[in-house]
C-alpha cells in the first residue's frame, strides 16, 4: 500500500513526528505538551523499528542453528531494536521528570496554562534574578516551615 511513492510504514512515523511537533508549538496546556512529547518519542521509535524490519519480520531469537540457517535473511535487524529499548527508558525518565517539574511550578503559581505560567515567571525575574527550579522548591519549603 503506497501513498506519494512511499509505503504507509515509512510515512506513518514521519506524520507522527510532524503532528507532535505542531502540537508542541501550539499546545497551551502543560499536560498536552507532555503527551505530545510521548507521541514524538513513539514516532522516532517506529521509524527505526520499521527500518529494521525491511528484510523480514521474524524476531531475532535464534532457537536452534537450524532456525538460523532457514530464516537468516528474514530476521528483523536486532541493532535498532536494542537501541530503541534504551530510547524508551530514557523517554520514560524524561516524562517522569517533566511531570514532577510541572508539579513544582503548579505548587507555586497555581496554574498549568503556558501563557499565565510564563507571565507569572517573567514578573518574578524582572530584576534579572536567575530563578532555577530548585529555588522554587526551597522557597516553598521555607514558607511551609514558617507556617
Amino acid at each position: 500500500m503506497e501513498i506519494f511513492g512511499m509505503s504507509i510504514l515509512e510515512l506513518f512515523p514521519i506524520v507522527l513526528f510532524f503532528i507532535s511537533i505542531f502540537g508542541l508549538i501550539t499546545a497551551n496546556n502543560v499536560i498536552k505538551s507532555i503527551v505530545y512529547m510521548i507521541i514524538l518519542n513513539g514516532g522516532v521509535i517506529t521509524f527505526w523499528i520499521a527500518m529494521g524490519s525491511r528484510l523480514g519480520r521474524i524476531p531475532p531469537i535464534l532457537e536452534t542453528p537450524y532456525h538460523l540457517e532457514n530464516y537468516f535473511y528474514t530476521f528483523a535487524d536486532p541493532v535498532p531494536q536494542a537501541l530503541m529499548i534504551t530510547t524508551i527508558i530514557i523517554g520514560f525518565c524524561v516524562t517522569a521528570i517533566n511531570i514532577i517539574m510541572i508539579n513544582t511550578l503548579h505548587r507555586k503559581y497555581k496554574t498549568t496554562d503556558w501563557k499565565s505560567l510564563t507571565e507569572l515567571a517573567n514578573k518574578e525575574t524582572e530584576g534579572g534574578y536567575d530563578h532555577t527550579l530548585s529555588d522554587v522548591v526551597y522557597e516553598i519549603q521555607d514558607k511551609e516551615a514558617e507556617a
Binding site: 510504514l9 521509535i45 517506529t46 523499528i49 520499521a50 529494521g52 524490519s53 523480514g56 519480520r57 521474524i58 524476531p59 531475532p60 530476521f75 528483523a76 531494536q81 530503541m84 529499548i85 524508551i88 527508558i89
Partner: peptide, 12 residues
Amino acid sequence: YLALGSPDVAMA
C-alpha cells in the same frame, strides 16, 4: 512494534 518483529521493544 510486535507486528514488525520486535517483541522486546513492544513489551517495554
